[in-house]
Nucleic acid binder design. Structure first.
Lengths: 285, 285
DNA sequence: TAAAAATATGAAATAAAATTTCAATCTGAG
DNA sequence: CTCAGATTGAAATTTTATTTCATATTTTTA
């Protein structure tokens, strides 16, 4: 039989808690992953009960101390899965540290959630395309520009002619010089950024392979146009705040693409790679 | 190949510990499973060193506090049989999808591990500094340039005069125009990039506040020079592959800084923010 | 080789967190 | 009502973690 986890124990006990304990229980159930980094004071504030009640709560559920509860929770949560991906949990009274913990949690969840949208076959197609390419271009604007820059840097290290710009007009001549089998990686979570779409169309005209990093949405133009779709989840974001998680998901996919390419290239290239790295360490500007 | 495992990190570092730290390290290696339930005093007694040395030991191995060490140990000891925690497990026969899963795992772990190095007080100092600043500059080179770009974009959205460049020579005049209370965010995981250090020194001469995003390493020059240190874990990477995880940790901290600043600014600014966003959606280039 | 600088260390002070105490406040049975 | 028992949080206390600082040690420099 399955060992009764501490969280379900709390759940089962819910009816029998006193009002103050119940507040604590509710808070802990809903923010279990934050608890290990919190103090009794933090929790009392957030749950609207006293510190004493937090400690009493621990005893009530049969755990000796608050510290023991934290350890128990960490142990259980390392295996647990997660589901939040928005910032509805942000509250007025949050301290910087609270906010940090929440961001960390959301980002972790975002990375995790890329597993749900990525497609094996598309990854394989991407791997194949990367090997065939001489030149690789990356294009993303606004929030996606940083991802493009990161990707560009990584593939340069692999010895590709790899370029990016967030300037539409700069991209045009770059695209004009693409040859068949070269790759354009277009990054736009929404899949509806006009500049990106125009660049993609131009690249297709030059018979380049277009890889899109975009959210899984069959109705989006970018999704429809791309030869290869590496999909990020639609991490529904609090629009007041703007997307943070989407950058994480883009980068996670870029990292994968990089590692896959690296893996395929084999040891031949690795020497040059090594050489460049040593030079960097030596010069260390 | 190295990884995110704290115990092997301690092992690898063994030669470089000071005598007192070494005693602590030895004790912890041998009794790792007991440590989460011990206090600094317990350990100092058992290891034959002072409590201060226990705390210092944590910093030396790149973990922000003793409490964080305890949490990290619990996580690892429970995760141990969940096998993967680094890239040593990359095998020839890995499919692209396998590689994707491994990258995802590593990135998630990297984000998670920032909780071990961040310091509450430094976050609060950073929050304060950001509110006082008129102008914010970001500087990072190589792999850190993408993080700087991302940060710059985010803070521009908040209405700051926010700039970045990865060109050293371009940075000079930007720094020259900084005023007291303005902020320079210097991003360098190693904390030893020469360009970055020179920029930091110049900024300090202009009385700007320097926030460093760097690994927790008390001996690194950037760590020593910065007014405020937001530390990322030393996700020691397979040097054949180059760092992926470190970008994740940088971005996680940048996201936190952004959210904290946003949170502090309050609703006054949120309107302008909204306005810009709606314009973006309308124009959607 | 001596002086100066940098590093390392633990005792003690301080800060932070957890726990306990206790007086005030409820709650409900008689 | 009223009183016994339960519940609660403010404040005191205890425990734990962290920082400071003076001293000791090593390393560098002159």
């Amino acid at each position: 039989m399955k060992q009764l986890s501490i969280l379900s124990k709390i759940q089962n006990h819910m009816e029998r808690f006193s009002p103050a304990e119940k507040k604590v229980a509710m808070y802990i159930m809903e923010h279990a992953e934050l608890v290990p980094n919190m103090t009794t004071k933090d929790i009392s504030k957030n749950a609207g009960a006293s510190e004493a009640s937090v400690v009493r709560f621990c005893k009530t559920i049969g755990i000796g101390s608050f510290k023991a509860l934290k350890l128990t929770l960490v142990r259980e949560l390392t295996i647990a899965d997660m589901n939040i991906n928005d910032f509805s949990i942000i509250e007025k009274k949050d301290t910087p540290f609270d906010l940090f913990n929440k961001v960390t949690y959301v980002n972790k969840a975002a990375v995790e959630s890329t597993t749900a949208t990525i497609d094996r076959k598309e990854l394989e197609k991407a791997a194949e395309a990367m090997v065939k390419a001489k030149k690789i271009l990356f294009y993303g604007v606004g929030g996606s520009a940083a991802s493009a820059l990161d990707a560009c840097y990584k593939f340069t290290k692999l010895g590709y002619v790899s370029m990016m710009s967030h300037d539409f007009h700069m991209m045009i001549p770059l695209i004009a010089n693409l040859e068949p089998n070269d790759v354009l990686v277009a990054i736009s979570t929404s899949g509806r950024t006009k500049d990106v779409l125009e660049i993609v169309q131009f690249a297709k005209k030059k018979s380049a392979t277009v890889i899109a990093i975009t959210k899984l949405d069959p109705s989006s133009p970018l999704y429809k146009e791309a030869d290869i779709k590496l999909c990020v989840p639609d991490v529904e974001q609090d629009h007041r705040i703007g997307s943070m998680a989407s950058r994480m998901t883009q980068l996670n996919i870029i990292d994968a693409l990089y590692l896959i390419t690296f893996h395929q290239m084999g040891s031949s290239v690795i020497e040059k790679f090594h050489e460049a790295r040593e030079e960097v360490v030596r010069l260390r500007r």
